[in-house]
Design a protein around this nucleic acid. Structure first.
Lengths: 301, 301
DNA sequence: ATCAGTGATAATATATTTTTATGAATGTGA
DNA sequence: TCACATTCATAAAAATATATTATCACTGAT
């Protein structure tokens, strides 16, 4: 047999209270159980730890040493376990998230702010990366999880779609299409547009949608940042097609849903067969909740 | 339920070997037992500690922390327990012994020397005290045990007689009584003697013996130290009566047993209902052994 | 697609712990 | 000094916890 924590705890109680019966009471055990634990511990250590008569219980010299030493060690152990338990609550720790540019600029700032408010002891590091690198970061375990857009099927990952991000039309308030509540894609035929260049994943999607519907547009300009594109639209170069998530706020510009809706799936991805740290899970869930709160209408802020 | 040492040990093994089956083997358990321990521990802490697929077992972030922390704490615990165990062997520690003057001057020096030889890690403090203070020191727990002479019956103490110390006659080689092998007490009638004074417990005993036998002696001198008494005997003042244990070594003096033998019991005493520390027990036993080796003849060195 | 290897699970068996009932020792106070 | 109350020890029985056997489900590799 081996020394057990229970034996040690019983010993501490008896040695402190100097009374088997009261120790039993305090530990919600009966006195014979206490007697046995002490006897077993003494047998295991080969030392008498407590001198007991019917009149008094006094720790021996080795007993006094054991008491103080074990008290300290068990205290440490309690601290360690408590630390792990609180870690388990996910309120503490460091979480690293890789996110593609669009979610990095839209979803993540809000997520970081909310997490800072709700879990002040939690540190959240955002890695703003192109889509392919997001996948790499997740695969390599450099981040806890990633936020990607329509990631390819891959058995290495577990995925969860958190948001469908529709494409919308952005045009000047005085543009003819601004008069419509919703703009069918076909109306774009022949329009002059400003689009993102191919450094963005969306561009390829937009091209495909237009091609599938047999729509031809005149791409007057292509930029790498939506902000630039919007300024060009304001300048009257044409209109633009953009994911709703990357919308600007500007009084001079109108935003109209494009019908039928074509969406990109904003997707959380994580390594298969690997659990998230509790803190990471907290953030993952927070992102899910946050996006669930964004209902289809409010999504177009 | 509560975290158990066994769970922690199992966790350490699995986390180190990264394999449930091999951990089971190493701990002489079966794999399902391992599974349960890990599951219970995780449930108890509310954290996933190990990510396990059929292909690999990898500690999670909290698991890695727990591993290192628990490894350290359990190490400390092992040290503490090991220390208590070796203390239990009685080869180490400090022992305080109070002894009355005669044993302090005769038995104890030899005991100290032998203990120093046999148990080098053991420290032995001798307290040379008058008999009554020896009893007080033992009673108050200031010493582990005491060496007294014919201590009074007292229910506070446990006693063990280790040696019977007979009274002997000391006289000059040219003294008439030196011619006898053994000297009957009666032959002392009318002799001039040098005795210890009443600061010694023996003096009262000697008085009583002489009185009981109706023997009258002329007490020429009384001293507080046997050494002085012996010098006076050498000087031809008279002869002396002394416990065998306090014998001098001197070529000019003869020592003769007094018959019938009157003895003092050299007695170890300790508090009742209190165990000795293992080290103290070692010394106690050593004293018993040592005195047992001194057979009746050799006792008169 | 099958197979070897791995952890999980359920039912059963085994150990351990706890309790209940009782005993033995000791100091207390009439 | 003798019952008495208090206290820890002990033994048998009950309850609980732990371990094993047998089996499953999953995964990646041949």
């Amino acid at each position: 047999m081996n020394v057990s924590l229970r034996q040690l705890r019983v010993f501490l109680a008896v040695s402190r209270l100097r009374h088997f019966g009261r120790a039993a009471e305090q530990l919600h055990l009966t006195q014979p159980a206490i007697s046995r634990h002490i006897a077993d511990l003494e047998a295991e250590l080969g030392v008498r730890l407590l001198d007991r008569s019917t009149r008094e219980v006094v720790p021996t010299e080795p007993g006094r040493y054991l008491h103080s030493a074990v008290e300290r060690v068990l205290d440490e152990l309690e601290n360690v376990l408590a630390h792990v338990r609180t870690e388990g609550e996910g309120r503490r720790g460091t979480v690293r998230v890789a996110a593609a540019p669009t979610p990095s600029a839209s979803l993540m700032p809000r997520c970081i702010a909310e997490c800072a408010r709700d879990y002040p002891e939690l540190t959240l590091h955002l890695r703003d990366q192109p889509q392919t690198q997001v996948l790499d970061s997740v695969r390599g375990g450099e981040v806890d999880f990633g936020v990607a857009i329509d990631p390819p099927d891959n058995r290495e990952f577990d995925k969860k779609i958190i948001l469908h991000d529709p494409f919308v039309l952005v045009c000047r308030n005085d543009h003819p299409l601004a008069r419509l509540d919703r703009v069918p894609w076909k109306k774009l035929h022949g329009e002059t547009v400003v689009l993102l260049d191919y450094s963005s994943g969306s561009r390829r999607l937009i091209d495909r949608i237009l091609e599938e519907r047999g729509i031809t547009v005149h791409v007057a300009q292509q930029t790498s940042h939506t902000h630039t594109a919007f300024r060009l639209v304001e300048a009257g170069i044409g209109c633009s097609i953009t994911p709703a998530l990357s919308l600007p706020v500007s009084d001079d510009l109108s935003v109209r849903p494009l019908t039928p809706t074509s969406k990109r799936a904003i997707t959380l991805i994580r390594r298969k067969h690997r659990s998230l740290s509790p803190a990471a899970e907290q953030v993952w869930n927070h992102l899910c909740d946050m996006t669930a709160r964004l209902n289809p209408t409010s999504r177009l802020r």
